[in-house]
Design a protein around this nucleic acid. Structure first.
Length: 500
RNA sequence: GGCGGCGUAGCUCAGCUGGUAAGAGCGCACGGCUCAUAAUCGUGAGGUCGCGGGUUCGAGUCCCGCCGCCGCUACCA
């Protein structure tokens, strides 16, 4: 059995879940569901990142314990994922005891190998921004935003000797040209590495909401350095070697483009330092833009995924998010576009196809489905579409996979128009046409099930089938000619409602 | 400043190593149909492929310059 592991970033709990988070997590979910459908052993990991200064400050402001605060804010993510039917196998929190233990083991290993050393961090700090700046960013020693003088700050910290991994990273990148996709992000990270790497400060001593350094209790790890380790924590690093070796390094990380460097430069070096292989693949996606602006916590353009689920329906929202924004480039996200796509792709094409097929079976076949024919003229188109969809799924291009499926749907609407079964007298001809149409619907429902799990089941129910999609031999089930008919076809409300 | 990307029909975008008459979806217009969720099917619109040069028998597709937008250029979740 093949294994497949997919991860999302762990989300910083300072931020309320929005469609941007949902975009990443939903992609991970459909990839996981696709691989489960293929019969692979799947591990889908997500979670929350809960340490760091910002959380400590927020907790203090509210007069609560940071752990109590993150218990609440972490739960918000779980709630949204439940609403979106995100089927993760594990939800890790960086405040979990298992993570703290794994971080200590992981970093101790690096420390013992001599790749973590103590040094002094010096930098420029803006009190208004509460953040550090580099010489290059400062404007004559002034903060580029507040135009006030930057303070020079010094702190004794531990440093990760990233510079020592330059050659190994270059070698790794050269030997694995497809390990980061899209290619532009690979190039970006690679050129960053080739331009020379500096050591990075990985601990803080000015606050204590973090994981303490095992060999120096006066310091805690910088959130990023610690957070990345979650990926191996959950897979059983130093705690479950059989699971770990089963899923690592054959793991796919899904990330947004803003965190490319941490994942594509720091993380592989950290793995090398700790003596494990880097992950096999990192997929970088762009942003969802609202009127050209990134949807983010700081902007006012945050969109709550729950509201869209309420508006469009669960499966509709899942489809719209996957189909509307290809994985990779930035893309515009608008309510108008969602509505249009919902009405044309879902209501008019797929939903209406189901309705008209069911209606004709009722009016011409007494509501009992005919068997499909083995030599339908639809057969070749369907087989081509299946092949294209499978290829796209395996290339992590779910929007393209859906496109291929919709070609089958359009083809079938055309097929009905061509033979006008509603005009024919009941008989073999009608039976063949309707049986073939039902067969397409059966195959469609299997192919869309990773994206629209409940709609897929509902379609199967309506065409009189009881297929447990959790337990099918995909290659067997997807072949043309399995719709045997002879079962009642169910009339019901439209599968997908039109909006306004 | 350095490196890289983008600018194709009203909208969102495909167009790999240059070569059948510039494409798709949506929207729009007209026509057909009436089984279906005013759904579906057909036809169409006539876009200087950012601008200006160049290479070539032939260039969205290669080269140069220009304009506009964007990303990366180290510690922001």
């Amino acid at each position: 059995m093949k294994s497949f592991c997919v991860t999302t970033p762990i989300y910083y709990v300072n931020d309320a879940p929005h469609v941007g988070h949902a975009y990443t997590t939903l992609h991970a979910d459909v990839f996981a569901r696709w691989h489960r459908l293929m019969g692979d052993e799947v591990f889908f990991l997500t979670g929350t990142d809960e340490h760091g200064l910002k959380i400590a400050e927020a907790a203090e402001k509210q007069g609560v314990d940071p752990q109590a605060l993150t218990d609440v804010t972490s739960q918000r993510f779980k709630d949204v994922w439940a609403k979106l039917l995100i089927q993760y196998d594990d939800f890790i929190r960086t405040t979990d005891e298992r993570h703290i233990k794994a971080v200590k083991a992981f970093t101790k290993k690096i420390y013992d190998s001599g790749y973590i050393v103590k040094d002094t961090w010096e930098g420029l700090y803006c009190i208004s921004c509460e953040s550090n700046y580099t010489e290059a960013e400062s404007e004559n020693g002034l903060c580029p935003i507040h135009k006030r003088k930057l303070e020079s700050v010094k702190e004794d910290n531990y440093f990760f000797k990233l510079s020592e991994f330059e050659d190994r990273l270059i070698k790794y990148y050269s030997e694995n040209p497809k390990w980061i996709e899209p290619e532009t992000k690979y190039n970006e990270a690679f050129s960053f590495i080739k331009s020379g790497l500096k050591d990075i400060s990985i601990t803080r001593s000015s606050f204590d909401w973090g994981i303490s350094v095992p060999w120096d209790e006066t310091q805690v790890f910088y959130v990023w350095f610690e957070a990345l380790i979650n990926y191996v924590t959950a897979l059983g690093y130093e705690s479950d070697s059989s699971r770990f070796s089963n899923f690592w390094p054959n793991t796919v990380h899904l990330i947004g483009k803003e965190i490319t460097r941490f994942h594509c430069v720091w993380w592989p070096a950290m793995c090398m330092a700790a003596g494990i292989d880097p992950p096999s693949k990192i997929l970088v996606h762009g942003w969802l833009l609202v009127k050209g602006e990134k949807m983010s916590k700081s902007g006012l353009n945050k969109i709550d995924p729950s509201e869209l689920v309420d508006e469009f329906g669960l499966d509709q929202f899942r489809y719209l998010l996957i189909k509307g924004s290809p994985f990779g480039p930035d893309s515009e996200f608008s309510y108008e576009e969602l509505k249009r796509r919902n009405n044309s792709d879902l209501a008019n094409n797929l939903g209406n196809l189901l309705s008209r097929v069911v209606a004709v079976v009722h009016s011409k076949c007494d509501g009992i489905s005919p068997k499909c024919s083995s030599d339908s003229e639809l057969k070749q188109d369907v087989e081509d579409a299946v092949e294209a969809a499978v290829l796209s799924w395996n290339n992590f291009a779910p929007a393209d996979a859906l496109e291929a499926v919709w070609n089958m749907i359009k083809r079938t609407n055309f097929y009905l128009e061509k033979y006008e079964p509603w005009k024919l007298e009941p008989g073999d001809r009608i039976n063949a046409i309707m049986g073939d149409s039902l067969e397409v619907l059966r195959i469609v429902s299997i192919l869309i099930s990773p994206v629209m799990p409940t709609a897929a089941c509902d379609m199967l129910r309506r065409i009189g089938l009881k297929i447990d999609l959790k337990n099918v031999d995909f290659n067997e089930e997807i072949r043309w000619g399995q719709y045997l008919g002879g079962v009642p076809v169910i009339k019901d409300v439209p599968l997908f409602a039109r909006i306004k």
